[in-house]
Amino acid sequence: MGASSETFSKREKEKQRQKKKQDKQEKREDRKANASKGQGLDQMMAYVDEYGNITNTPPNPQRRSTVAQEDIAISVARRGAEPPEDLTRRGTVTRFDSSKGYGFIQDGQSQQSVFVHQNELIDSIQQNDKVTFEIKMTPKGASATNVRRWVNEPVAAPAPPEAA
C-alpha cells in the first residue's frame, strides 16, 4: 500500500482555498443581484437632521430655524486687553554674567526661566537680585525687558501721637 502523497495539512489548506474561492464567488453574485447602479438621485440622497444625525428623509421646511451670523462663534472668545499691572512681573535673577552681557530671571508667577540681555536693563543687576520686568516674545522665546531691581520698601510706621 502506497502512502498518499498529500499530507493532512496540505489537504486542509486546499480546502480553505476552495472555501475562500466559493465565498468570493457568492459575494460577487450577490453584488450583481443587488446592484445599486442606476438608482435615482432620491434613493442615493442622505440628509442631516437638526441633531446632526444622517437620515434618508428630507428635513421639514416649517421646522427650519434661522441663525444670526453674529451668533456663530468660530474661534476662541474675544478677550479685552490685559490691564497694565498684569504686564509687570516680579522674579529673581538666577544667573547673570556681566562679562557676556546676558542672564536668566526666574519668573515668580510661572516659575519660567526668562532670558535677559544687558541692553534691556534699567538698573544693574547681579545673581539673586529681586527684579521687576516685562515679558516680550521673540523668535527664540520669551525675553525680559525693562528690567529694574525691585526694592522692598519698608512700610513707614505711624508717627507717635503728640501729647497735648
Rank of each mutant, 00 (worst) to 15 (best):
A3R: 06
K13D: 10
E14G: 11
K15G: 09
Q18D: 14
K19P: 04
Q22C: 13
K24D: 13
K32L: 07
A33C: 03
Q43F: 10
M45F: 07
A46G: 12
D49M: 02
Y51T: 14
G52I: 04
G52D: 04
N53P: 06
N53K: 12
N56F: 11
P59D: 01
P59M: 03
P59E: 01
P61W: 02
Q62N: 13
R64Y: 08
A68C: 12
Q69Y: 10
D71N: 14
I74M: 07
S75P: 00
V76P: 01
E82G: 09
P84M: 02
L87Y: 11
T88G: 00
R89G: 01
R89K: 15
T92D: 06
R95C: 08
K100C: 06
K100P: 05
G108H: 07
Q109L: 13
S110H: 12
Q112P: 12
S113T: 10
S113F: 02
V114Q: 02
F115W: 08
F115Y: 14
H117Y: 06
H117L: 05
E120A: 14
D123V: 00
S124F: 11
I125S: 00
D129G: 00
K130I: 05
V131S: 01
G141A: 00
G141S: 00
T145C: 04
V147G: 01
V151I: 13
N152A: 14
V155D: 09
A156Y: 05
A156T: 15
P158N: 00
A159E: 13
A159F: 08
P161K: 11
E162V: 15
